[in-house]
Design a protein around this nucleic acid. Structure first.
Lengths: 179, 179
DNA sequence: TCGCACATGTAACGTGTTACATGATTCA
DNA sequence: TGAATCATGTAACACGTTACATGTGCGA
């Protein structure tokens, strides 16, 4: 399943919705890293339905303009849970950070503070490892290298440091108040 | 041209290289957001060559193991320059930040501090606008919304703030020492 | 009645992914 | 001699992009 599939599945699980409503979410909110084009959304929804991960019913309550409302099935919910709890790999951190954040945003459905904490701890560890990796690359930079590449790399490092900080802060909000 | 094409073109312009060498760059450095798989690289290089953006010659210096070395053509260089100087759109900032940083890393070929400064100023402005946009989304969050979504959004905002800070800092390094 | 927002779709196309395939060179 | 690295490619497949297509409902 491509990321868009999970994004749709997650949103539909939160609340049944039409293709048009889902398009608006991608077009108007911070979830804009996923495509809102009809050529992406409608075929993706059809695939989800073929795989029985969602079901649809046509709504004609408002006049005869048909509107297909999707809701997630037991199978879809199960798949979503599995996706949320996948181990976080270094590849995820390197190339799919946005997908990790999408996963995190859907974590409430697991209703488990423990699961959230595991995610954030693993995320923080992987991000910190990658920061170390990038710092070594920076050290290995020849002094005559163009300053632009160096700056770009430094910017990347700052981003990951910011994510690590974010994870530590988020973690503190899910800490058990163990006395 | 897809981003991978520009990434290859930019690297080849910096220094003639073989497909294998380019794959290693993507596999081993912070440019890892681009695919290093042979099924992506080799067809992409063939396309660049068909379009006369690069030329290749076979190197047999080390034994008879053939090695195709690519170098950029005048046409390729021209296309690259055009790409580097494209106006930065809000869509770039929203969905293609990594491509913007790739562009910045190739800016030395323009040999113009002015061009670098324009890029960074435009970048900073667009990023700051987007931060404002995201902050408004955060304000519009209903209080009963799950804390996870809120945290994910806050993390995104922090990222963009970090980029704005980065741009301001980078800019200071390219400031004219006007007296 | 004009245009905009609502609402869903299809078709052609290009590209990345995954898996497969081949062979030379170097070093233990 | 066997494994790892160097080195280049192809084929099937799935997916997103872009452009096109169609029609309703509502407010100015």
């Amino acid at each position: 399943m491509p990321p868009l599939g999970y994004a749709l599945l997650g949103l539909i699980h939160q609340q049944p919705a039409s293709g048009y409503a889902l398009r608006k979410v991608f077009a108007e909110t911070a979830m804009g890293s996923y495509s809102s084009s009809p050529g992406a959304i409608y075929p993706a929804l059809q695939r989800l339905e073929e795989q029985r991960l969602v079901s649809s019913k046509v709504d004609r309550s408002r006049s005869l303009r048909p509107k297909k409302i999707y809701q997630s099935t037991a199978q879809g919910t199960k798949l979503l849970r599995g996706w949320l709890q996948r181990p976080i790999t270094s590849e995820d951190v390197k190339r799919r950070l946005d997908e990790l954040l999408l996963r995190f945003a859907f974590y409430p459905m697991l209703e488990s503070t423990l699961a959230t904490r595991s995610f954030l701890e693993s995320f923080r560890r992987q991000v910190e490892d990658y920061v170390t990796n990038l710092e070594n690359q920076l050290k290995a930079f020849p002094p005559e290298a163009p300053i632009h590449s160096r700056l770009a790399l430094e910017g990347g490092i700052e981003q990951y440091r910011t994510w690590a900080r974010w994870a530590r802060n988020a973690l503190s909000q899910f800490e058990e108040d163990a006395s």
